[in-house]
Design a protein around this nucleic acid. Structure first.
Length: 864
RNA sequence: GGGCUUGUGGUCUAGCUGGUUAUGACGUCGCCCUUACACGGCGAAGAUCUCCGGUUCGAAUCCGGACAGGCCCA
């Protein structure tokens, strides 16, 4: 224990945080694979290594770290691993930018190496941030998806799902980004609003409206509604595509909206998702008009090689020339764009790899998982139930996990590697065997790579120690913490993959955090200039203040509006708490007695409240209600302990009575307990205080377990506190200083006899006489109030009538007390406590001021 | 257009399995530098709980509708 003189007057968060960062060892937070304690594995979200941790990460990691630290104190063997989800386009783009190249300028492997190098640098920067924030990460279980140990597992998972029929390849329309030159999944499509032109033109005599005239060369049919009488004559016939002069069938389909445009729709492969549906149901031809670089193909001659936009203008110009363009209207629309680069997506038909989506399996598993908050489950269920296409997992990129298969150049036979040989890059390595089907020795490696979600969706398996084959003994994990923005992606894919690979759910629970909004209430964005960086916050108020903000800024799961106020309040709480510790240490240090401490009512009362607070915090943390727990602790420390208890016992602490050490020992227990409870929230602050108090490390302590308390101590203590506060208010109203002598006060507590050990009198500087009898005063009933909590349930519909009947009784009757009341012919019993009489007092004899709390009277004798 | 969600003093926020006086913070006003803390203490003012309707003896809380915001999607 240190001497109080060592404690600075104000809490130096920067110094303290630095000190404990140096003190904690990585080993302190390791998961013990040999332990017999119950396990608690957190499936930490692996961030994309941009090099910067943003405030949303901070929120997410604070939740996890609170849980990790709390569970350790509760006796769990906790794994809080850190992963890095490396692959993806942003890094490719960044590398191109840094080196002034495009990825096709150099060999695949050289480009990948550049991506890896940048990623390693970024990971290192983010590691430093995570360490600086004191997150108790288990670095012995770190994983990096681009490293061979990890992506060989990604490849193994691919091969297993290929074997079990979950993965197949097929020619199928996919969402395609022509800038990134890759297929993307629906989950990666973002939608933006804009206005486009709806062009009306004559299509072989029929008026047709289209927003995509550039796809005219990809037209494969014209569709009309079967009941549309305007087009009866066209049924079963064909039309000639203008400008391109080839025949397309006219088809009938109920889903055509006759009121949109002219009621005739041109179907192209593919203008939108609806085209795909019609194309499939009517078995239409496939005409590929756009290639994967976004240029028009040979079938679009003479527009071949043009970008879609140029082609659109050219075709419209040609239509005008031909005189078939009738008019153009503005049309608001939502355009699907690539979520990474905002380029409008095209729907192209390509040979791609797919994972089968089995919505029922996923739905069932999702329901077995405990969702915090519960309603987030609905989002996943809604998304799952409306899945129309399977998940396209192949990408035409470079920095990603290679798809580990080869094709025979002679016969097209597919060959997969032995799992023992993973990881492999099929574009670099070749099989040593000839083709089992045709005997050819020429192999072509698959150049497509895997969607990054294929990497990250096995994270719970990997941290549980998956060998690529059998379900790990530590599976499933206990908790997946993540944001609600990626429920349809990461949560969805992880459940799907877990079921495909193990048949089990990946986690027992999922904790979904909200987004952090800027101070203006909008999503943080550079363009709004409302971005707050964690660094800025830490610089100004320290890590613990940031953590308090994250924990208490809002209810778990809801979006949290950033507020400097909350951060400042957090930092003030630390100062307050620090001063409580300083003051207490001064008192503890003066404690020379070795005898058993004499406890007073106030001491027992404080411990009762402490126990209740611990219970509240425990329940809150067990239910991921971080804000509730922290608020309970702040309220207890500031109000109950500092403003009430310390004020009550100061008199004892300053004196030398035998009950002094009772107060000291109470303070010791209370601060010890408070530090432990604060440890998950503000680990640096708690560590520092605890060290001063006990000389030990709070991270080595167990969660507090306090004895049961006596309800009477709680009630009587509350009464003393109320009395003190009433007397303070009285002083305030009388214009007296709070420490001014108040003279003589008689307190009548009829039926209750208790001993406050003189604490109340010393606190308000008065001589207090406690009487367990009613005072000898004349009193007049001046009104009545009803306790609806009793009246309501007891009388239901009759409540109003009962209250009126009681009000109608003569004051004299009420004064004597009633047990029943007549309503019409019926006698109705009135339960105890159903009403309270409001009194005024007639003062006789000595002139006293009267204060009342219920039936308790405080008589203040104006002269001592 | 659909699904989910939110709407509480000047600002942010808790409560929302219905029950006396609606939580806390910041801000505002008054008094107090009482030997831990003025980043403090003691008090005060400030809310028709978005609006309308319903259920109920009783609604911030449950139901329906409107308006507004957010997220996800068509």
């Amino acid at each position: 224990m240190s001497s109080p003189e060592d404690l600075d007057k104000t809490y130096d968060y920067a110094g303290v945080e630095q000190k404990w960062l140096e003190q904690w060892r990585d080993e302190d937070f390791y998961f013990d694979r040999t332990s017999t304690k119950p396990r608690y594995i957190i499936d930490t979200p692996p961030p994309y290594p941009t090099g910067r941790l943003h405030i949303g990460h901070a929120l997410n990691w604070v939740y996890m770290d609170i849980i990790a630290r709390y569970k350790r104190m509760r006796g769990y063997n906790v794994m809080f691993p850190q992963g890095w989800d490396c692959h993806g386009l942003p890094t490719e783009v960044k590398v191109e930018e840094i080196h002034g190249i495009t990825k096709n300028d150099l060999p695949r492997n050289e480009f990948r190496a550049m991506c890896q190098e940048l990623t390693r640098e970024n990971i290192e920067m983010m590691r430093r941030s995570i360490r600086m924030m004191g997150f108790s990460v288990d670095w012995s279980n770190e994983y990096i998806t681009m490293e061979p140990e990890y992506y060989s597992l990604t490849q193994a998972s691919f091969l297993r799902m290929l074997k079990s029929g979950y993965i197949y390849q097929s020619d199928h329309p996919v969402n395609y980004c022509t800038r990134c030159e890759t297929a993307i999944a629906f989950a990666e499509v973002a939608y933006t609003e804009n206005t486009t032109l709806l062009n009306y033109f004559i299509f072989d005599g029929v008026e047709i409206a289209t927003t995509r005239p550039e796809l005219l060369g990809a037209c494969v049919a014209v569709a009309v509604h079967p009941d549309d009488e305007r087009y009866t004559s066209l049924r079963d016939g064909t039309l000639t595509v203008p400008l391109f002069s080839y025949q397309v069938p006219v088809i009938l389909d109920e889903t055509v909206d006759p009121s949109f445009g002219s009621g005739a729709v041109m179907i192209c492969t593919f203008g939108d998702k609806q085209d795909v549906v019609w194309w499939k149901t009517h078995n239409l031809d496939l005409r590929k008009a756009i290639d994967h670089t976004g240029r028009m193909t040979a079938i679009c001659a003479p527009y071949t090689g043009m970008k879609t936009k140029e082609c659109r203008e050219a075709i419209l110009a040609e239509m005008r020339k031909e005189g078939i363009l009738i008019r153009q209207e503005e049309l608001p629309q939502r355009v699907g764009t690539c979520w990474r680069c905002q380029t409008p997506i095209e729907i192209l038909s390509e040979r791609q790899w797919f994972v089968k989506v089995r919505p029922d399996e996923i739905t069932d598993a999702a329901k077995e998982i405990t969702w915090f908050p519960e309603h987030m489950l609905t989002r996943l269920l809604n998304w799952t139930s409306q899945m129309e296409w399977d998940w396209c997992i192949s990408r035409q990129r470079l920095f990603a996990t290679p798809i580990p298969v080869w094709f025979c150049t002679a016969c097209g036979e597919l060959l997969t590697p032995d799992e023992a040989d993973l990881p492999i890059d099929p574009t670099v390595e070749s099989p040593k065997i000839p083709c089992p089907a045709c005997g050819s020795a020429e192999w072509q490696g698959e150049t497509d790579v895997l969607d990054t979600w294929m990497d990250s969706s096995i994270s719970p398996l990997v941290v549980s120690g998956w060998d690529g084959k059998t379900t790990p003994a530590l599976y499933p994990t206990q908790l997946r913490p993540q944001g609600h923005d990626i429920i349809r992606t990461w949560a969805f894919y992880t459940i799907l993959r877990s079921l495909a690979l193990t048949g089990e759910k990946p986690w027992d629970g999922i904790l979904v955090n909200g987004m952090v909004l800027g101070e203006d209430g909008f999503k943080m964005s550079k363009s709004r200039n409302n971005v707050i960086s964690p660094d800025e916050l830490i610089e100004r108020h320290g890590v613990d203040a940031l953590r308090q903000w994250a924990a208490a800024g809002g209810a778990t799961g809801s979006d949290i509006t950033f507020s400097w106020n909350d951060v400042v309040a957090a930092s003030r709480f630390q100062t307050k708490m620090w001063n409580i510790v300083r003051f207490s240490l001064l008192q503890i240090r003066r404690d020379e007695s070795t005898a058993d401490p004499t406890t007073e009512l106030a001491d027992r009362w404080l411990l009762a409240h402490l126990r209740r607070t611990v219970d509240e915090v425990t329940t809150a943390l067990d239910n991921n209600q971080f804000d509730r727990g922290l608020k309970a602790l702040r309220d207890f420390a500031w109000s109950t302990l500092a403003d009430n208890y310390l004020e009550l016992v100061k008199g004892r602490l300053y004196g030398n009575t035998p009950s002094r050490s009772g107060a000291v020992s109470t303070l010791r227990t209370t601060l010890d307990t408070l530090c432990r409870c604060l440890a998950p929230y503000t680990p640096f602050f708690a560590a520092e205080c605890y060290h001063h108090l006990t000389g030990e490390r709070v991270i080595d302590q167990e969660w507090p377990a306090l004895p049961e308390y006596d309800e009477k101590d709680l009630k009587d203590g509350d009464l003393v506190v109320t009395i003190v506060s009433l007397l303070r208010k009285y002083k305030h109203d009388e214009g007296l200083a709070l420490n001014a002598p108040l003279g003589h006060v008689t307190i009548y507590t009829p039926g209750i006899s208790f001993d406050d050990g003189g604490d109340a009198g010393r606190t308000v500087n008065a001589m207090i006489d406690w009487r367990s009898t009613a005072p000898n005063l004349d009193r007049i009933v001046s009104g009545i109030t009803f306790n609806m909590g009793i009246i309501g349930p007891a009388f239901r519909k009759q409540a109003g009538a009962v209250m009126q009947a009681i009000r109608d009784l003569p004051m004299e009757t009420l004064k004597e007390g009633i047990s029943s009341v007549m309503i019409g012919e019926d006698e109705i019993a009135i339960p105890d406590g159903a009403y309270t009489l409001v009194h005024s007092y007639a003062i006789e004899g000595e002139e006293v001021d009267i204060l009342t709390i219920g039936d308790i009277f405080l008589a203040i004798h104006k002269r001592a």
